[in-house]
Design a protein around this nucleic acid. Structure first.
Length: 113
RNA sequence: GGAGUAAGUCAGAUAAUCGCGGAUGCUAUUUAUAGCAUAUGAGGAAAGUCCGGGCUCCACAGGGCAGGGUGCCAGCUAACGGCUGGUGGAGGUAACUCUAAGGAUAGUGCAACAGAAAUAUACCGCCUUAGUAAUAAGGUAAGGAUGGAAAGGCAGGGUAAGAGCCUACCAGCAAUAUGGAGACAUAUUGGCUAUGUAAACCCCACUCGGAGCAACGCCAUGGAAGAAGUUUAAGUUGCCCGCUAUUACUUCUUGAAGAAGGCGGCUUGAGGUAUACAGCAAUGUAUAUCCUAGAUAAAUGAUUAUCAAAUACAGAACCCGGCUUAUAGAUUUGCUCUUUUU
RNA sequence: GGAGUGGUGCCGAAGUGGUCAUAACGGCGUAGACUCGAAAUCUAUUGUGAGAUGCAAAUCUCCCGUGGGUUCAAAUCCCACCCACUCCG
């Protein structure tokens, strides 16, 4: 991901979750905050209630993969945090549905090209 | 063939495209990054954190009291609450499985309710004596009733009625002898009874110092400065020693703010594999050979094709040895019982 | 990653072997008193789980996170597991 870096500090997560704009999908919700750079920052958050380590890891992987497919179509200069809704049943996790849901969210936010 | 039992192995593979982690090499520039290439990248439980060690710091760990742990015997191990082999007990037709299994004659406590009485006793009954009788005194644990438990069990003798009071058998206890390394087993003799509970206190034997990689060390930045007061603080264990160590705490004033970062520790180890020898076995010894994750918002995914079907439990976080718990399916070997056929 | 604490009616919480926990005690709910009415206060409570039998009254059995064990007897003692919460740079 040349045009995207991952968020690392807990501080950054908190700033985006508090100050960013909030869009809701079926499986995930997205927080977006503009930064004045040419790069996108992305962070993925999965709550403890979603499951144990294996399930949480798998959710993160699926979301990251879905984002990677969409990445070239997104306007640069945003900090994005994707939050998995822990109410969801783990069996609903499929690559296609997550991807569709993510596209809907981004188009709502209006950052798709 | 069916049913069972014990021990073990594997935990999808191959190919294509895109993608991720660190490692090594090369190239490029700007101290740092980018690109390319190469090989490599989660488990049998990585889990629970229930034990035991290594490692780090406090004195490489010391003395006393208190406290914790283990508990048939022997062996193995770095160590253990683990493992192996035996002994006793329980279950099963059997293969085999399970077993916190020291001491209740060292002492103390507890045993509710019921019952006459719970470790000592006479309510009813039975018998003897006194009495016309009611009843009184004494003997008695065979019978009744209560209870989880009532003075070993059962038969015969015995007696006023009874009682290990006496005898045989069984059970239990002690001593002696023999066998065994020991737990213990077998035999003989003796006296004649000793309730249960130690996962109640306790006794006996062995054993345990505390904290944990978010330990700890280094680097950069910062941890502030001033005044006053109190005292030896703090750490090492709950306490007392001893030791480390020379400051620590409180209040006021001024000032600054955030769960701030990087590197090491960090993977070569009580390591794996193969063979030989010792041992019933756990395991040990010797030789050869191999290097096999090291992340820090935390690396293994997506799509397609083929294999009949690809699906369980589940993700390393300092590292090992166990235990416990979760688990789809496939498969190997030994043994037991039973059925049919020959 | 490591260390620790807890789980009892609808909620909080006591009870550390013995008459079934009338589940103590407090809150909650319901009913009554006081008031024109309400609040506060006071009083009562046959409500405080599940199942079985029964027309009903009532009776019996099982429940202290779950499953085993010790004991005559376990919410309490021991072992294993599940869940919730707190602390450590």
């Amino acid at each position: 991901m040349k045009s995207t870096l991952s968020l690392k500090k807990n501080n950054d997560f908190q700033r985006v979750l508090q100050k960013g704009k909030w869009y809701n999908g079926k499986l995930i919700s997205i927080y977006i905050l503009k930064n004045n750079k040419d790069i996108n920052f992305i962070g993925i958050a999965v709550g403890k209630k979603a499951g144990k380590a294996v399930k949480r890891n798998r959710i993160k992987r699926v979301i990251r993969e879905a984002y990677r497919k969409i990445d070239p179509e997104i306007i640069k200069g945003n900090t994005i945090v994707i939050v998995w809704k822990s109410k969801n049943v783990y069996e609903n996790l499929k690559f296609c549905t997550v991807k569709e849901d993510m596209i809907k969210c981004f188009s709502k936010a209006g950052i798709l090209l």
